[in-house]
């Protein structure tokens, strides 16, 4: 796919939110990664849900995080599948560092496809253009991340 810089998904998807999920999107609009945690046992969960899967509590709160994460896995897709020269975007699963292994779907931006490595360190970008997705970029030049593979990789 060449040495292109990966772009956010476009055109941006419309977001639908309800009482359970809107805190995530509101925080993201402010450039903050915030995840739902159980008010009883403290564990994170994603996507938001009415019950804690660990203790069945319905009490939860939202905890802002640093926005630092690791790349768990990713794919690379053309934005315009019928155009061989289409820019590409990177749907990914990322693991926020402080969330006990919980993952979220995101786009990786700010690098070329060749820089992507499972396990690489990422940081949340602030609101960018029209994109509605959580956008993460590498925190440092890509390096061999094989030593960091594992449960939080």
């Amino acid at each position: 796919m060449g040495a292109k810089t990966v772009e956010p998904f476009s055109p941006p998807a419309d977001i639908a939110a309800d009482e359970l999920t809107s805190p995530f999107w509101s925080a993201l609009n402010q450039g903050v990664l915030s995840l739902q945690t159980c008010a009883s046992c403290g564990k994170f969960r994603m996507p938001p849900s009415p019950y804690c899967p660990h203790c069945t509590s319905t009490q939860s709160s939202w905890r802002p995080l640093s926005g630092r994460a690791r790349l768990y896995t990713y794919t690379i897709s053309p934005i315009a599948p019928r155009d061989p020269d289409s820019p590409v975007y990177v749907p990914a699963l990322v693991t926020p560092l402080e969330a006990g292994g919980v993952r979220l779907f995101a786009n990786i931006v700010g690098c070329s496809p060749e820089d992507l490595q499972v396990g690489m360190e990422l940081e949340l970008m602030g609101p960018t253009g029209d994109s509605t997705a959580p956008l993460f970029r590498p925190t440092a030049p890509a390096r061999d991340a094989s030593a960091q593979a594992g449960s939080v990789g």
Binding site: A16, A17, T21, T75, I79, P91, L93, N107, P134
Partner: peptide, 21 residues
């Protein structure tokens, strides 16, 4: 929907992309 927005926002629009992950 509130649920599918989490994967549709980053452009996971096709089953093949999930298989790729």
């Amino acid at each position: 929907s509130p649920d599918n927005s989490f994967f549709r926002a980053p452009g996971l629009t096709a089953p093949g992309q999930f298989a790729a992950l």
